[in-house]
Design a protein around this nucleic acid. Structure first.
Length: 286
DNA sequence: GCCCAGGAGTGTG
DNA sequence: CACACTCATGGG
């Protein structure tokens, strides 16, 4: 069946259902036995909670895979310090109790950019379907039924017509343009940029506005000070903090209130708001 | 059938 | 700066 690699990582607290189940990443599925299967780079990965540890199965495996996985779940974050700092906020302290194992993931920059451009004005099940369609049609086959997310060369082969046919709608044009504009050098340059410059330059890309730029900054480039605001976050900020207004207004409020770890605050508030509304629409509810 | 979705782009006041 | 309108479509 080909190479397979198995090892354990320690990244407590890490709740797989919370971290992989509700909309940060669109490529992970909960299996019937409660483990999670997805793709990290060119690896087909299964994660299974094993007490205080997580058992990792990776195919095809190889040198450096352990670090890939540790980076993906941001195992090197000082969660205690982050939650201690955010816990100074009484609202957050309350909600955080149920979400201690919710971690921010670190996605590939290109995959994250395309995924969140697709995410505009679509619900999570549909986004998962679109991202999956790109992988199956333009990515590399890793093993049976599992495909990597296509790099720019692979995705460049797609025509707008094909992309529309995969259900991308008006997003097809954005994806096509991104393939033409973004290159490796740009991503490298952005990786070194300050958060403010990163954000500014992302917004210049087609299909990228305030919200997508913040998602890509947070999940793709690992900028923990980023605070994406979608419809759920508007509800959370209005309900819990009595804050309403433009994106800029809310963004400034978040920066002052939550500081360098605003991204974690955002994830706690986002999930809390969705749970509060209803528990449908969450991958791990089934 | 109806409403909504991890919004962005463009035009207008 | 804020607001209004359009965009194309599947999921609940």
């Amino acid at each position: 069946m080909g190479a397979q690699m198995r090892f354990e990582i320690q990244a407590a607290p890490l709740d797989l259902d919370l971290t992989l189940g509700c909309g940060q990443t669109f490529r992970w599925r909960r299996t019937t036995d409660g483990s999670w299967s997805g793709v990290i780079g060119d690896q087909s990965v299964n994660l299974r909670k094993n007490g205080n540890r997580v058992t990792v199965n990776a195919h095809p495996g190889g040198r450096g895979v352990r670090e890939y996985v540790l980076d993906f779940v941001r195992a090197h974050d000082d969660i205690g310090k982050i939650q201690g700092r955010l816990g100074e906020d009484p609202v957050l302290a309350l909600g955080m109790k149920k979400m201690k194992g919710l971690r921010i993931v670190k996605l590939d920059e290109w995959e994250c950019l395309v995924s969140y451009v697709l995410a505009t004005y679509a619900n999570i099940p549909r986004i998962m379907k679109m991202v999956d369609a790109l992988a199956v049609n333009y990515g590399s086959r890793i093993e049976h039924g599992v495909y990597s997310f296509p790099d720019r060369m692979q995705l460049s082969k797609a025509t707008v017509k094909e992309l529309t046919g995969l259900g991308l709608g008006y997003r097809a044009d954005y994806v096509k343009e991104l393939c033409e504009i973004v290159d490796e050098q740009m991503l490298r340059s952005l990786s070194k940029a300050s958060y403010e410059r990163l954000r500014r330059e992302l917004i210049e890309l087609p299909g990228v506005g305030d919200k997508v730029a913040d998602c890509v900054s947070l999940f793709g480039f690992g900028r923990l000070e980023s605070f994406p605001i979608d419809i759920w976050m508007e509800r959370a900020l209005a309900r819990l903090y009595k804050q309403r207004g433009s994106y800029k207004t809310l963004r400034t409020f978040a920066a002052e209130r939550f500081g360098e770890y605003a991204g974690y605050a955002q994830e706690y508030l986002y999930h809390n708001e969705r749970m509060h509304a209803r528990d449908s629409c969450c991958a791990f509810s089934e």
